[in-house]
Write a protein that binds this DNA or RNA. Structure first.
Lengths: 247, 247
DNA sequence: CGAATAGTGTCTATAAGACATTATACT
DNA sequence: AGTATAATGTCTTATAGACACTATTCG
């Protein structure tokens, strides 16, 4: 039921809305992204981000993202961090016509291989480094979307409590450090990390005096605190001066 | 020419794509946004962000944003900073039907009142504070879009050279300081600001040894430097701890 | 000269990074 | 005891903010 028309002779362009998901997680200390193999043309057989079309004109976009999260990734959408990443709408990005995609960034704690027998049967976790370095080509403009998603995650680690979204419900400070090291791709000093993380009020709170069994001294467990914005931020060390223009 | 269909019985929802612009500038040391008065329903007579529909299925979204910038704001789109802010697509955001809007953030140097006799005749610069404090209601979800745009500008001032986009081609350090004070809504120490700005390599470069005439000592003029990412960042002072949860 | 604005210097509290030390578990 | 990991402490250097001072124009 669309009616409007500033100019009656003008007819609205037909555009389809899609949703694409950059689902990041940590597996064996490396950043991974969930990819699916495309079953139909175009780009049949290629790897692509999970996603799909808006179901109907009444479906909310964020709701569509959650739905795809369930359908394609078989992930419980309930307590997953999900945020809008950007909209990708270059006219030629999809050979089937004008398809504008709203991309979302999702962060998940460590998870097993996607279960077969669901829509996600063709899905698999892939190391982000392999994709971004060009070893695997992605369909459409998904390489760009993934790069933007990873960059967003990197900067959000500095200023928000996003890091805890990679962890389980309770976690040690060493667990959290692994998240930062994997996403940032750097090594951090455990002592200084410990101190800085604790210095941010409300970032993480002790989860009772419980502890975990390993080889050495047990570690205290924490859970995410009430603050989502970090003060002070955890600054990423030595962001290499990348794009200096002409000198 | 849209053909695809994983399921032939399914028909794509009809969705219209719009573009909305948050155009910020500095006028008499206060942050202003460009608003237009709506001439037709819905929200006829209300203030709204400039914007419009995608012209045709072949038009790039960013190109549409530039076109609206010209048509509705009568601004030379050439050398204006323009970046995607987000996509707003709640099903009920527009009573005419399902209209998904891609919002862009534009930063302009100080400009005179919009010229009459153009599409922008109904346009005017309004102080951002007046709008955000609720004194003026905006059409649709434009209040939210504006709030997001201002927040984006605030954080981008810290980490990017966006501040220079508010200034003319050459500017003094005091000019730049006014930008930061207006956008952040704080007072800054001129001496420390001077030192910190100069400490960021490639942020601003001297524009010859030219100077400007005022009452006191002439000020050196600068122009934007080659760097767009600031190292180190200009940290915003005392970001009030806003959302601390329960203690 | 005095007023006004631009630019520089200095001091101090705080934070960041390197690294030593102590604590608590397991075998 | 020996080893492994967790947690805390110390030192040095860099940075942020407060503020005094010098410099250059105009009337």
């Amino acid at each position: 039921m669309v009616r409007f028309m500033p100019d009656e002779s003008w007819s609205p362009p037909i555009v389809l809305i899609a949703v694409d998901l950059v689902i990041l997680t940590l597996r064996s200390s490396a950043l991974h992204v969930l990819l699916v193999e495309r079953g139909i043309a175009p780009y049949q057989g290629d790897q692509a981000l999970p996603g799909g079309f808006l179901n109907n004109a009444a479906e909310d976009i964020l709701a569509a993202a959650h739905r795809e999260l369930r359908e394609e990734a078989d992930l419980d959408a309930g307590h997953l961090h999900l945020e809008q990443l950007g909209t990708y709408g270059a006219p030629e990005r999809d050979p089937r016509g004008r398809i504008i995609s709203v991309a979302y960034l999702a962060i998940a704690p460590s998870l097993p291989e996607p279960t077969a027998g669901t829509d996600a049967a063709s899905a698999s976790w892939r190391p982000v480094d392999d994709i971004l370095s060009g070893h695997t080509k992605l369909a459409f403009d998904h390489h760009q979307i993934l790069a933007d998603g990873v960059e967003r995650a990197r900067t959000k680690l500095e200023h928000s409590a996003l890091g805890t979204a990679f962890c389980d419900e309770t976690f040690t400070i060493a667990d959290l450090q692994q998240v930062y090291e994997a996403v940032w791709g750097v090594q951090l000093d455990p002592r200084n990390f410990y101190r800085k993380v604790q210095a941010v009020p409300g970032f993480i709170v002790p989860a009772g005096d419980e502890r975990r069994t390993t080889k050495g001294r047990p570690a205290r467990l924490f859970r995410p605190g009430p603050r989502t914005v970090l003060h002070p931020p955890l600054v990423r060390p030595d962001q290499q001066p990348m794009n200096l223009g002409v000198q």
